[in-house]
């Protein structure tokens, strides 16, 4: 996930397919999820994501992103905002003759802040998912702790039940949760910085 050479620098090279693949991987899914959160159909959300990525590629190559003025993720959502709002309005027009007026009005009424919020939620989820994946890879030797954390935090299993299922004592389950939580938080910080800042 994290490379020793800034992704931002590599993105200047249009031939660096690997860098652009990484960039796409980080943001496309988030953009689709943002669109879905805001009520776009899957097709519209994918279209909006695609257009956002293409515009980002063109503008980045043209030097329009200035790192000093903000984080990469903020810049992306700025591009996405217009695409998604447009897609919402197009969707509203298509639905206009089918849906109730109130619904059409609601579909038109998407503020820029709504897009930003939805994007942040989706990005946070993506970062958490990636951090969790990274953590699982890094801690392969401590599967009992990870499992205890997963059972209790992600699946809502009671502490006592998780203790029985993992072979740990109740105290050990608490300790495992604490340990994994700390490492997960560190992983989230790393991944967050990598994605938002294009490291």
């Amino acid at each position: 996930m994290v490379t020793t050479t800034l992704l931002l620098e590599r993105l200047h090279d249009s031939q660096d397919a690997e860098a652009w693949r990484l960039f796409d991987e980080r943001f496309r899914g988030v953009l689709i999820a943002t669109g879905l959160r805001l009520g776009l159909t899957r097709t519209d959300a994918e279209d909006a994501a695609q257009e956002t990525m293409l515009q980002a590629l063109r503008e980045y190559q043209a030097g329009k992103y200035d790192r000093a003025r903000g984080r990469l993720s903020s810049w992306i959502v700025g591009i996405a905002r217009h695409r998604i709002i447009d897609a919402r309005r197009q969707g509203a027009r298509r639905a206009g003759h089918l849906a109730a007026l109130s619904e059409v009005a609601a579909m038109n009424d998407v503020r820029e802040s709504d897009v930003a919020d939805a994007f942040d939620h989706a990005l946070e989820r993506h970062i958490f998912e990636e951090a969790w994946r990274v953590l699982k890879e890094e801690t392969k030797g401590d599967s009992a702790s990870l499992e205890a954390f997963e059972l209790t935090s992600l699946r809502g299993v009671a502490i006592a039940s998780a203790a029985r299922m993992t072979g740990l004592s109740v105290d050990q389950v608490y300790l495992a949760r604490n340990r994994v939580s700390k490492r997960l938080r560190a992983a989230v910080e790393r991944v967050d910085r990598a994605i938002r800042d294009g490291v």
Partner: peptide, 17 residues
């Protein structure tokens, strides 16, 4: 850390990407 765990759980239970 416990609060972070809760936050993590909340986010992960949300609509996935």
């Amino acid at each position: 850390s416990a609060r972070f765990s809760r936050r993590f759980a909340e986010v992960m239970s949300d609509t996935p990407v």
